[in-house]
């Protein structure tokens, strides 16, 4: 039986692992290669690196980190952050990444995802979505992309009391007016092999995944969904899979700061009846 995956996520800035709360207030959490090797020993199912280095000139640093990690770690490695061109993807895959996560560049040019999937195969193209619940009392953000005429329905939000979620780009800074659920579906139809869905409301808060968001997106997709943002307890990991219907649960700070270990998380999920690789 296919196991649900537990994925530690390493936010890498200028070659170091950092972690913030709701995308700000970064804390240093150590050397990415050492941390990756420790997760290998613990039996993590996959690893994700998100390169949050602000400057594009420092891209060499993440390639070096990926390369050194690939020497030591024999599990799938996803790398995202600032992926803008087919060359970026080629370089990351060459350095040892198995999958590449595309976020902002996909929103600005959806065709890029199509080209990437055709060139490198859907199995290595992850579309990362940063989503925030829409405040029903506030005016909707206007479409912030040039291609809105081609996909006008993507900007339609469900009416309250139904919850709606909006796509943000640039590490959660820019609201795009796009309906996150419809966006995930479009990305699937463009060849994405997996969706990495981060709840901005929950990121770093340790209050649990946004379960309605994850369940709504998972139900809308035929490709796997990775839930991200908000994991704080064992129960949260369980709920992410059982109620959020995620195929994999991603977490950062709880694993880096050793509040939970991978083995105890796996034991817990297994005891609760989730198929898990021990």
């Amino acid at each position: 039986m296919l196991a649900k995956r537990i994925i530690p996520c390493l936010d890498v800035k200028d070659g170091r692992v950092v972690k913030g709360v709701q995308f700000v207030n970064l804390r240093d959490a150590g050397d990415p290669v050492e941390i990756a090797a420790a997760y290998e020993q613990e039996g993590a199912d996959e690893l994700t690196f998100l390169d949050i280095t602000a400057s594009h000139e420092n891209r060499g640093i993440i390639l070096d980190v990926v390369q050194r990690t690939a020497e030591k770690v024999f599990m799938p490695l996803t790398v995202g952050g600032g992926v803008r061109s087919l060359d970026d993807i080629r370089n990351l895959l060459k350095a040892g990444a198995d999958k590449v996560a595309i976020n902002t560049a996909a929103v600005h040019n959806p065709e890029f995802v199509k080209q990437a999937a055709e060139k490198f195969g859907s199995q290595c193209i992850v579309v990362a979505i940063d989503a925030k619940q829409v405040d029903p009392n506030a005016p909707l953000n206007p479409p912030a992309v040039e291609w809105k005429e081609r996909h006008p329905t993507l900007f339609v939000m469900p009416q309250p009391p139904q919850p709606a979620w909006e796509v943000y780009t640039h590490g959660g800074r820019n609201p795009m007016g796009i309906n996150a659920v419809l966006w995930a579906r479009l990305m699937e139809s463009y060849g994405a092999g997996e969706i990495l869905l981060t709840s901005m409301d929950r990121d770093g808060t340790k209050s649990g995944y946004d379960l309605p968001l994850n369940r709504t997106v998972s139900d809308a997709l035929t490709i796997p969904l990775v839930a991200s943002g908000g994991a704080g307890t064992l129960e949260h990991l369980y709920a992410g899979v059982a109620e959020g219907k995620a195929d994999a649960v991603l977490a950062a700070s709880i694993f880096h700061f050793k509040e939970l270990t991978i083995p105890e998380s796996k034991q817990y999920l297994k005891q609760r009846g989730i198929p898990i690789r021990i």
């Binding site: 649900k4 599990m75 199995q123 092999g193 997996e194």
Partner: peptide, 30 residues
């Protein structure tokens, strides 16, 4: 979901020089 992505178990159907018969259902990444 398709792709079939993640860790799944094998059912060993015959003896093989590459698998350990003591572990007939190992997990591998697909």
């Amino acid at each position: 979901k398709v792709p079939h992505m993640g860790w799944n178990t094998l059912n060993l159907k015959k003896s093989s020089p590459l698998f350990d018969p003591a572990e007939p259902h190992p997990y591998f990444y697909f």
